[in-house]
Amino acid sequence: MLAGKRVRKEIILAMVPAVLLLAVTVQNARATTPTCTAPYGSPSSDVGCYGVQFINYFSNAAPASGKVYARVTAPLEANADTGQPEEICAMFYVFDWGEAMQECCGCPITADGLLTLSIGEPSPPPPTQGTPAGGNLTGNPYSAPDEYYYASGAAGLQDGVIRLISAETNGTTTPSSPPGNESVYRDEAGTPERLANGVFCDRFSGLCCDPAGANSTIGTSAVTLYTTVRGWADHVQNDGVTNTAFEENPISRSDAGTLASVCATLLTAGTGNGYCNCGDEFYSEDSYNEGTGGE
């Protein structure tokens, strides 16, 4: 009996430092490892990265449901001490209810900016700009089994899952607007330019986001996870609209690579479908026409 108590005491004593070590290690990993850039040697060392994948759903995105929105911000400040960059990519991977990826796109977002993309019928392209059309996540599916066709002729997904990955910019182009003139060309600031299907660039910095990474025809580097973004999505319910934050889910680098690889098959198929649109939802419209969903 006495020996049994001693054993339990020893077990508890043995666990205390182990738990302490584990707790500090986890805390430290969250505090000081914003990136998952280090190469991994084997699947066993490819542990989940925290703060880089966020998941939400969309529902009832049918023609009669009106338009609702997903919103994403990059709350961390550009900070020389921590290496936090000014520009981050919000990589979207949109799945139908049957687990098939139907759309993907990479949207640049600057610190404290707000990206608003619609769910439901996409906006028509702005008359003076050609591209991009109003931002939309569900209106251009690759081959959706549950797609809707809107009055505009565009197809759209009804229900599914949005996986949002926070990543470093992974491409560049010649910016179309003069760098440093963001305050002059403010109405263009929220309209990333389209470099290729699903690949969008900041029109001032020329930094681009390729959701397929090096798998695509233009990708120059892989999707590198980087803790930054936070997001929210509206949900059309049977009676009205609700809204929740994207839920954080750790993701391994290999899983992120798989997402990029599948995305590449959509972008390079050449059908013109399978990619979402990062354009400013409100650029071509009255700036206060938001919020028709659930009416």
Binding site: V241, N243, T292, G293, E295
Partner: peptide, 15 residues
Amino acid sequence: LQSYTTGYVTETRFE
């Protein structure tokens, strides 16, 4: 305020 025409309101916590 989701829609100022219908008055639908949602709420989320700060993240």
